[in-house]
Amino acid sequence: MSSNWVEVCAADDIDEEDVIRFDHDGRTFAVYRSPDDEYFATDGLCTHEHIHLADGLVMDDIIECPKHNGRFNYKTGQAKGAPVCVNLRTYPVKVEAGSVFIAIS
């Protein structure tokens, strides 16, 4: 499957230990900056119901969904327990020349 790198934002546009929403080509993603200054990306909607994860809370490597507090590891996409049972899809991320890119397949 081929993937193309898409520019999301400037690296500084995302606060440390935070997340932003990124919409592209009819799809929505969540792009994270971890407390140790690494960047990650997942699908933007919770796998439980159609809620944007970018309105949730980032704690260490966890994103907590704003609707029912379901938790995922945003680095691996792993669902951490009820009410989320289905893992999140993750996407490769790179930072180049001060900008964040995600690889969308």
């Binding site: 439980h48 119901e49 609707k67 029912h68 009820a82 009410p83």
Partner: peptide, 13 residues
């Protein structure tokens, strides 16, 4: 604890 976690999830939806 299992039943009510899910029923409360629905209550919030």
């Amino acid at each position: 604890p299992v039943t009510w976690r899910w029923s409360h999830t629905r209550h919030h939806t």
